[in-house]
């Protein structure tokens, strides 16, 4: 049975050591080339002045210094925080929707699917839908406001409301996502624990707070992760609905970066990279938190 030819023998003896790297290589290589190395390159480029074609010039921290003087940067930063804060509302709203739908009545599966619908649709389409929804004159939302208050507002053209309007559009699919996470969580509750709590006379809010929510903690964690990422990645809606306007009032870092690096404002790759690095650092705070928690979980396995 044992083969004695040298190459086969070598492979056979060492396959346990070599196999993982062979399996890993193609995927890891792609990931390295397209994800990991570009992160480093971006950081490098952020110290350069570069139009994307010609030679790069080392400018040190100049891009960052300029950023600190850029009013749009502060608007974008403020809006990002707004996004982050308001986007988290998707979690309680998703929980509420899940609790509402977690019944066993005729057709409930279809209801759940339809409620989840917004998440499946491209953000481009969501953006167009809400643009239409908010449109002055004929948009349903504007009509409702007019009917309620008597005065008309053009949400997406008003510096005061525009960001809120876009965030509301983003909350729509995000709430659906959180809802489905919680529905799955509710599906897997420990029934005996709930019955025991009911025997102890816990019900309603107190049951939710002390028995259900702790059991839903994993769902909440994932909802937090995807919501935070979603908030900081908010590019599509801003681009579709306002392109950062009016007068840059709905800017966010992701769109600001894109605009600086690639649009008619000129090809300022270095400056764009610097903005991306700032966004990356903000995200890194959260990534670190998530990973630390994941490591803790792995250890407990």
């Amino acid at each position: 049975m044992p083969t004695n030819s040298q190459p086969a023998g070598f492979w056979k003896r060492n396959q346990m050591k070599i196999a993982p790297y062979v399996f890993l290589a193609p995927g890891a290589l792609m990931f390295l080339i397209y994800v990991l190395i570009p992160i480093v390159q971006s950081i490098w480029i952020s110290f350069q002045d570069w139009d994307g074609l010609g030679p790069k010039t080392w400018v040190g921290l100049a891009n960052y210094v300029e950023l600190l003087d850029d009013d749009t940067f502060y608007v974008a930063l403020k809006n990002n925080l707004l996004w982050l804060g308001l986007y988290l509302l998707a979690i309680p709203m998703g929980l509420a929707a899940a609790l509402f739908l977690n019944q066993n009545v005729w057709g409930i599966r279809l209801y759940k699917s339809l409620f989840f619908f917004p998440f499946v649709i491209s953000q481009v389409v969501v953006g167009l839908m809400f643009t239409w929804f908010y449109a002055p004159d004929f948009g349903l939302f504007s009509q409702a406001i007019k009917w309620l208050t008597g005065s008309e507002v053009a949400i997406l053209a008003d510096e005061r409301y525009v960001t809120y309007g876009i965030i509301a559009a983003g909350l729509w699919p995000q709430t659906a996502y959180c809802m489905i996470l919680y529905l799955t969580g509710l599906n897997n509750l420990n029934a005996e624990q709930i019955e025991a709590a009911r025997m102890d006379n816990a019900r309603g809010w107190r049951l939710l707070r002390h028995v259900i929510l702790p059991q839903l903690a994993p769902a909440t964690f994932i909802a937090m992760v995807v919501t935070v990422i979603g908030a900081l990645r908010s590019f599509d809606l801003v681009s579709i609905m306002t392109a950062g306007g009016p007068y840059g009032s709905s800017q966010v870092l992701s769109y600001f970066m894109y605009e600086q690096a690639l649009s008619e404002y000129g090809y300022r790759m270095g400056y764009g990279a610097a903005i991306a690095v700032v966004l990356f650092l903000i995200m890194m705070v959260f990534i670190t938190l998530f990973i630390v928690r994941m490591i803790a979980q792995e250890r407990n396995r």
């Binding site: 397209y34 994800v35 190395i37 570009p38 992160i39 390159q41 971006s42 480029i45 994307g52 992760v225 990422i229 900081l232 990645r233 590019f235 870092l253 992701s254 970066m257 894109y258 690096a261 690639l262 790759m269 764009g272 990279a273 903005i275 991306a276 690095v277 966004l279 990356f280 995200m283 959260f286 990534i287 998530f290």
Partner: peptide, 11 residues
């Protein structure tokens, strides 16, 4: 989890 923008210019 990283923002796409950090990849944009090099990619």
């Amino acid at each position: 989890f990283i923002p796409f923008q950090i990849l944009m210019v090099p990619v």
